[in-house]
């Protein structure tokens, strides 16, 4: 291709105006890489497909490179385990500190720890928390949430509610976002939030669901021992 040495008049005029014409001229001059020139149509651009000088045509068949590449492919295919997982049958664990769905924590007697101070509701940027406050039935506290609802469709999982909570009553677990076929199911009530992090999820992390005691995140490739 002679365009760099002998710029055509079209090349001087500019790409926007005459790109099609320049492409046609380039393909006529260079012959073999015509398809590239016609497709890209950039007259000023250095063609990248031109082989470096001093290679024979045998080398330019690139048989050795193709063979080594395929060997690597087959080696991975046969000898190595796959990096991908068969989602959703097989799921990688989230980082134990990931912010997924909420849990409303309870004390030893199964009573919610929440005192309905509404600070989570105040901190929530997406206004997805709805609490109805009532006098508590227990003598050791005055108020408790009669109703506690989180609209998981509105929630952005920012974790501000957890930060705001003075009683450690609400916590974001690594449980990823659930999928339902109706909107009502996304509005979690108090009972659902209390039982939102079932036992098999807790056992998945060695230290229960406490975040700081969970195993560290392994980085690339994941920790395969956790996949089951």
């Amino acid at each position: 291709m002679k365009a760099p040495e002998h710029p055509s008049p079209a090349g001087l005029v500019g790409p926007a105006q005459t790109s099609a014409a320049a492409g046609a001229a380039a393909s006529g001059a260079a012959g073999e890489p015509a398809a590239h020139g016609a497709a890209e149509g950039e007259p000023d651009e250095e063609p990248e497909s031109e082989p470096p000088p001093g290679r024979s045509w045998v080398e330019r068949l690139y048989l050795r490179e193709i063979a080594s590449g395929l060997a690597r492919t087959f080696r991975h295919l046969v000898l190595e385990r796959p990096f991908t997982t068969d989602y959703p049958d097989e799921q990688l664990p989230y980082n134990p500190r990931a912010r997924g769905e909420h849990i409303l924590k309870v004390d030893e007697q199964g009573r919610e720890k929440c005192v309905a101070c509404l600070l989570c509701e105040a901190a929530c940027p997406s206004k997805c928390i709805r609490i109805v406050v009532g006098p508590s039935p227990w003598p050791d506290r005055e108020r408790y949430p009669v109703e506690f609802e989180i609209d998981m469709l509105r929630c952005i999982y920012c974790g501000y509610c957890e930060d705001a909570c003075p009683c450690d009553a609400i916590e974001l677990t690594p449980k990823p976002y659930s999928v339902y076929d109706n909107r009502e199911a996304y509005i979690y009530d108090k009972e659902k939030l209390k039982n939102n992090y079932p036992q098999d999820w807790r056992e998945r992390f060695s230290g229960g669901y406490g975040k700081l005691t969970g195993p560290p995140y392994r980085g690339e490739g994941g920790d395969r021992s956790l996949i089951r």
């Binding site: 005192v115 101070c117 506290r141 108020r143 003075p166 009683c167």
Partner: peptide, 10 residues
């Protein structure tokens, strides 16, 4: 006391 979360005056 640190009652602010349950105090109506808060």
């Amino acid at each position: 006391p640190l009652d602010c979360p349950v105090c109506d005056q808060a």
